[in-house]
């Protein structure tokens, strides 16, 4: 097992969500995807960053960017009457990665032990100038979007921790889906040691919407980690429920849950939905506000 003893980070730590920072000029192709009730859903779909943009954000964020970084992509959920909005974008998400390895501890790939041993054996130390500035190379985040408070500030909106949960029964109804979209914010193949993906799905029904922002990590031979943030909005009441859930398990413990007759286990381990249904939940937290 390569999970360090100091995995202090429990995932979503605070209910106060910071406002979005601006790392690049806003892309000019944001589209109003749907207007429903008091809410406006905007989406922006673009290719991965080019090398100029990449250099710029690498410098301002301060760590190497994930291999596929959709830095000009995002979702914006705007409550039109109040101006309150919640946004999701790749660069604000990556900004939440542990940039030194001091906060979350650094994981190692499964072959790291063998690798280090052979290095010592070969007495190569003198030629190696050290570890590239350490950072959480798994790009683990607990990202729940960025909230911009209502600009006119007439009604202070604050989220309170609640025992209430997102009403699954309402979401299980076969209501028509007026709008569905998904978007990858970033993805890194961890130099073929696994996979790290942050993506978003949204579905808008006539009376409510659900947005799932999921961080999925697989380090081959080491572990699985999922950090979900769900944003649920009930249009009539202006109720916004946000649910944060973290899951983690060792690679082996999950692999054992694959039926023994399965020849191609990779299919299961690559599927975040299967993984999410088979790994233990570490923590769940909900908060709620009424947006009017």
């Amino acid at each position: 097992m390569n999970i360090p003893a100091t995995t202090a980070f429990s995932g979503f730590t605070s209910i106060s969500t910071p406002p979005a920072k601006s790392f690049l000029p806003p892309p000019n192709n944001e589209k109003l995807a749907i207007a429903v009730d008091d809410w406006r859903i905007y989406t922006t779909h673009n290719p991965i960053l080019n090398s100029v943009e990449l250099d710029k954000v690498t410098e301002s964020i301060g760590i190497p960017m994930p291999e596929m970084i959709f830095g000009n992509n995002g979702f914006r959920l705007l409550h039109e009457p109040s101006g309150w909005e919640i946004t999701f974008d790749a660069l604000n998400a990556v900004d939440g990665v542990d940039k030194t390895g001091d906060r979350d501890g650094l994981l190692k790939v499964s072959c790291s032990q063998d690798w280090l041993k052979s290095r010592q054996k070969r007495e190569l130390e003198s030629k190696i100038s050290g570890v590239v500035k350490p950072f959480d190379w798994t790009y683990s985040v607990a990202y729940s979007g960025n909230v911009t408070p209502s600009p006119n500030n007439t009604n202070q909106i604050s989220f309170e921790v609640t025992e209430e949960r997102i009403p699954i029964d309402k979401l299980k109804r076969p209501d028509p889906i007026l709008f569905f979209d998904n978007m990858i914010l970033y993805e890194d193949e961890l130099s073929d040691n696994g996979s790290s993906v942050l993506d978003i799905k949204i579905r808008v029904m006539p009376e409510r919407l659900l947005l799932l922002c999921r961080f999925f990590l697989r380090i081959d031979g080491v572990l699985f980690r999922i950090r979900d943030s769900r944003t649920y909005i009930e249009f009539k009441t202006g109720e916004v429920i946000r649910e944060f859930q973290t899951q983690e398990a060792t690679y082996e413990s999950l692999r054992k849950k694959i039926p023994s007759y399965v020849e191609d286990y990779g299919v299961y381990l690559r599927d975040p939905n299967w993984v999410s249904q088979h790994i233990p939940i570490q923590s769940v937290m909900c908060e709620k506000a009424i947006i009017t």
């Binding site: 390895g101 790939v109 790291s112 190696i128 100038s129 590239v132 500035k133 350490p134 190379w137 130099s191």
Partner: peptide, 22 residues
């Protein structure tokens, strides 16, 4: 088959993953 160039370091460096060079 694995190593990558890095224009911020002039020599060989060890990846923070614990395996692989730049």
């Amino acid at each position: 088959v694995w190593s990558d160039p890095d224009d911020t370091k002039s020599d060989f460096s060890l990846s923070p993953r614990g395996a692989g060079y730049t």
